[in-house]
Design a protein around this nucleic acid. Structure first.
Lengths: 165, 165
DNA sequence: CAATTTCATATGACTGTGTCATGTGAACTA
DNA sequence: TAGTTCACATGACACAGTCATATGAAATTG
């Protein structure tokens, strides 16, 4: 997305955004932060929903992340493309990570939650990325993202419960 | 990387690459293909090494993918950023995917190899991506990529062997 | 050896994009 | 009414991707 395109869509000139943002990267960082925050809000609501098992809640959270990639690929790329050294970006990303951490802890227990949380977060991001880039073709692998998420959660639950410590 | 920078490094002018590549995207696609191919070669050699267990071989293959991300972040981004609709790119990517598939089959058995292969490939990509974007800070998660890879492989092996079908 | 074709590259021009200095008009304020 | 503020437009600059054209060296051909 070019700044001219942003301007055109908003009906203003190309230089107008520079009154509100220091440069293009700052504008993009703002978009990334908003996306992180909105997704964190969604997962937070979802985590408060008592109407399903911890497994199902975690699954829906992971699918929510993947859905952002499907619906807003550019925004999704910004989330993980924006350097994490911006404090506000790191904060909003951390909020989502903490939501995932809590959901994972409900599935695998508190010890090891960080461990499996990192794996779930990374795998979710990887599934989204593979699907986005077209490298997760159903024709090739005969599975879709939804089944992968299911398999992932089953695997870590089994691993965590079967081999404590 | 701009084409002018490519030219400067090669000691030629900015337009010189256009005698060899149709446009910038084609040049970058070529880089992506070379990276896919080189990694597939490396994993193929690794797979022929009889000196370690199937687990260890798969682990080293995943780490090889992550290592590309560490050493050549731009090339890594090109691999999964280049649209997979280019036939040659799809072919070279498919070669690496098949190497992974074979390695995974040695660990979890033939049935379910596609299933777990897709998960391993996606998770590996996700771990690499999280590390690259700085979202896998050891301070936050208290784990590094190496341990995540270990955990991932343990989890899918346990899952595949414990619950057949 | 001379003429010709081929080929990689240089050069200059055009477009599009990020950026900024400056100007302008409207809304708000004293 | 005059001054301040604020968002935006305008025009300019630099740079990147692209292409048409020119040049000069190497290879080929007679």
């Amino acid at each position: 997305m070019t700044l001219r395109a942003v301007g055109a869509r908003a009906g203003v000139s190309r230089g107008a955004p520079y009154g509100h943002f220091e440069n293009k990267e700052h504008l993009l960082t703002r978009l990334a932060i908003d996306t992180w925050t909105s997704l964190a809000d969604e997962v937070e609501r979802l985590r408060a929903d008592p109407g399903c098992t911890p497994d199902a809640r975690l699954e829906r959270a992971v699918l929510a992340l993947i859905e952002v990639g499907r619906r807003h690929p550019h925004r999704y790329a910004l989330m993980f493309g924006t350097p994490a050294d911006d404090p506000e970006a790191a904060g909003s990303a951390g909020r989502l990570e903490n939501e995932f951490l809590a959901l994972v802890a409900d599935v695998v227990g508190e010890p090891g939650a960080l461990h499996y949380g990192a794996l779930v977060m990374s795998s979710a991001h990887g599934i989204a990325g593979m699907e986005l880039s077209g490298h997760l073709s159903k024709e090739k692998w005969q599975v879709g993202s939804e089944e992968l998420v299911r398999t992932l959660i089953d695997a870590i639950r089994g691993q965590a419960n079967g081999l404590p410590g």
